[in-house]
Each structure stands twice: as C-alpha cells, then as structure tokens.
Amino acid sequence: MSDLALSPSATPDESSRHRAWRRGWYRFRRNPAAVAGLVLVVLVVVAALGAPWLAPSPESAGTFVNFGERHQPPSLHHLFGTDNVGRDVFSRVLYGYRVSLLLVVFVLGLSVPFGVLLGLLAGYYGGWIETVIMRITDIFLAIPALVMALAITAALSPSLMNGMIAISLLWWNWHTRLIYTTVHALRHEEYVEAAKIAGASDAHILFREILPNCISVISVKVTLDAGFVILIGAGLSFLGLGAQPPTPDLGTMVASGANYLPEDWWESVLPGLAILFAILGFNLLGDGLRDLLDVEVS
C-alpha cells in the first residue's frame, strides 16, 4: 500500500502550498502587533547569537572588574551604564539574552516532545491510558510552577542547569492538556477512520496523520511559551536560585542592581526592560500566529 493512499490530503502540490504561504504572510503583515512581535523576537535572537561581535565589551560577560568605572550612568561609551564592579551593562544584557534563549530551547526542547507524546497517547487511546495520563497531568497543573521549581532547585542546589531541569519538569503538562484536547476532537475525523480501514498502524496514524494536524497548535503554544519560560526563569534567578554569578543572567542582574536603587537605577531597570522586551516579543508574535492559524491554545 502506498503512502499516498493513506494520506490523501497530506501532500498538496507545491504551488498551492506556496500560495498558502504567500497568503499567510500577507495576512500576517497586515497585523502590526504581530509584525512588532516578530521584529522584537528577531532582535533578541540576533543579540543573543551575535553577542560576541555586537557587545562593546565582551569581557564584561565574565568575572572582569574595572573599579575605575563602577556605577557609571548610561552614556555613549556605556549605553546602559556600568554595574557595581564596572562591567558594561549593555554587553551583559546581550549575553543575558543567550542565557534566556538557552533556557527556552532547553526547557521547550525537553518538555514539548514529552508533553505532546503523552497528549497524543491519552487522546488517541482513551480508556485507562487516558485516565492515568490526564489525572497525573491534572496533579501537576495544580502545583504552582514557580513554587515547585523553587523546591526542585533546592533539592538539586541552585544553578542554571538545575533551574532548567526544574522548569522542564513542570512544563510538559500544559502541552499534554492541549494536545489531548486537540486529538480528542480529531480522532474520529474521516481521514483517521480511512487510515484505520486501510490497515495503517497506530504509530502511523498518530505520527503521520494526527500529529501533522497538531503542528499549528503546537507552534503557537511554543511561541507563547517562550515568553513565559523567560518570565519564570527570570523569576527564579531573581531569587538567586537560577544562574549563578558571574553568568550574565537578566534576572540576576535585576536583583543585584536593585541593591543600588534609587541612585544607580540603570543597573536594574535596563536589564528588567530587556526581559520585558523579549517576553513582549514572543507574546505578540504568538498572538499574531494564533490569529493567523486560527487555533485555540488555552
């Protein structure tokens, strides 16, 4: 039996797919909020990837000290001023985005596939598999994520790695819920029934028929999540339980800069704004994609 027979709508011809992309891009461009989100996200990614070349003072990312230039206010020489040991705050913010994006990639890379897989299984098979998976998911949903992440980092001792592990352990359940609901609605669709009658294996139906139809939901959710992972990671490190000094983490920078308020406001306020920009970018982009792909993710 050929693949084509099993998935009649899965491979539309190239030109119609190309047209769909063009149409999507056109509609996306007409949504100013979504475009602003895309611009912010691109800026953040460029800042993170290009930090070694863009940062005026790459050595500021580490243990570098320059006591002659401590607590300098923002100027042309130091765009965001300097911190309590004379490091360039702007350079540290650029490197800070690396830490934030590393967190996003790690947490979502680990928790999304796991969460999606459980959601697929629970939604498709139903019965006791569904009961077990969804009840465990509900228990995890009832745990305030930040509080639980605190407990886990405590058990593992505070560090960036352990913070990432803690957040991953608490993130999968949202994807399980979402995919479960989606699959539940899809499992009696005609193309699924057709594949079953054609004798396709469960694995084929799950991964080749149902999963491709979940991709738009997942991509919207992942974009929105990226912002919230940055948010929770910043919270964790703000409490001193995430990345440890001298790692240039934005949350840690806000916390340590806050010691010099109100005089040296730039040391905490500007890294705080940097966090805000990243979260805002992913949020706007996610909302724009949601409108574009017309999916429900909550």
Binding site: L231, A234, G235, F238, W265, V269, I275
Partner: peptide
Amino acid sequence: SLLGVVTPSFFIALLLQL
C-alpha cells in the same frame, strides 16, 4: 492588559518602588 501580562511582577514591583 498586554503590558500587565508580559511584565515580570518583580520588575513592576521594582519600578513602583522606585
């Protein structure tokens, strides 16, 4: 509403304090 949702609460706290 959007700013309320995307701004870390500890950052709002810090700004208000300031």
